[in-house]
Amino acid sequence: MARLTTDRQLLIEARVANEQKSAAVAYALWFFLGLFSAHRFYLGRPGTAILQILSYFILVGFVWFIIDAFLIPSMVDQHRAKLRSDMMASALALPDD
């Protein structure tokens, strides 16, 4: 199994830190634009954002809206983990210097 050099690992961690989503921004979007599911669009979940908007018509969406207040930290963590995984996979595909 190929391993990444320390320099590449540091580069990946720097990129993850720069490209990760902010929980504070996600909460602000949830608070101010939650009825438009802006926080879910911001966190890269357009499918569930649209589903949430459509579910407002049957009142389930309002419960989902409240539950999202507790789910935002895990959604931010999942986004960070996906970024890291994608970057590691691309770095492993590159030839060593």
Results as ranks from 00 to 15, higher is better:
66 I>K: 10
91 A>W: 12
31 F>S: 05
92 L>F: 13
61 G>V: 03
94 L>V: 05
72 I>A: 10
33 L>Q: 14
51 L>M: 14
37 S>P: 00
35 L>G: 14
63 V>G: 14
61 G>A: 13
55 S>W: 10
22 S>C: 00
42 Y>L: 03
78 Q>K: 14
89 A>Q: 14
41 F>C: 08
90 S>Q: 15
36 F>L: 14
27 Y>M: 12
81 A>K: 14
78 Q>M: 04
77 D>T: 11
82 K>F: 08
82 K>Y: 03
68 D>W: 03
29 L>P: 02
26 A>C: 08
42 Y>R: 08
31 F>M: 09
65 F>N: 15
96 D>H: 09
82 K>M: 09
22 S>N: 00
48 T>G: 04
56 Y>F: 15
85 S>K: 14
54 L>I: 13
25 V>K: 15
36 F>S: 12
83 L>M: 06
54 L>Y: 00
74 S>F: 12
35 L>N: 13
57 F>Y: 12
60 V>T: 09
53 I>C: 11
24 A>R: 11
84 R>I: 09
81 A>S: 15
44 G>W: 11
40 R>W: 00
31 F>G: 10
68 D>C: 05
64 W>I: 05
95 P>A: 04
30 W>M: 06
46 P>G: 04
95 P>S: 09
86 D>Y: 11
26 A>M: 10
97 D>R: 13
68 D>K: 06
47 G>L: 01
46 P>Y: 03
95 P>V: 00
80 R>W: 07
72 I>S: 07
96 D>F: 05
72 I>P: 12
23 A>I: 01
28 A>Q: 12
23 A>R: 05
91 A>D: 09
86 D>Q: 15
81 A>W: 05
92 L>T: 01
65 F>I: 00
50 I>A: 00
85 S>I: 06
24 A>Y: 02
34 G>Y: 13
52 Q>D: 12
67 I>P: 01
36 F>H: 02
69 A>H: 12
37 S>T: 00
94 L>G: 02
27 Y>S: 11
22 S>P: 00
76 V>F: 02
71 L>Q: 10
55 S>F: 12
31 F>I: 01
87 M>G: 01
48 T>Q: 07
93 A>K: 12
70 F>G: 02
68 D>Q: 04
80 R>G: 00
73 P>C: 12
58 I>R: 05
68 D>E: 15
73 P>K: 09
25 V>P: 00
61 G>H: 07
50 I>P: 02
40 R>P: 05
68 D>V: 05
79 H>S: 03
89 A>W: 09
59 L>Y: 02
58 I>P: 02
25 V>Q: 14
57 F>T: 00
95 P>L: 03
46 P>C: 04
40 R>D: 08
66 I>E: 06
22 S>L: 01
40 R>A: 12
71 L>F: 10
26 A>Y: 04
22 S>W: 10
65 F>E: 04
90 S>N: 14
71 L>I: 03
44 G>K: 02
92 L>D: 09
48 T>L: 07
62 F>Y: 15
27 Y>R: 14
93 A>F: 08
49 A>Q: 08
62 F>S: 11
35 L>H: 11
57 F>V: 15
63 V>F: 14
42 Y>D: 09
59 L>R: 03
62 F>K: 09
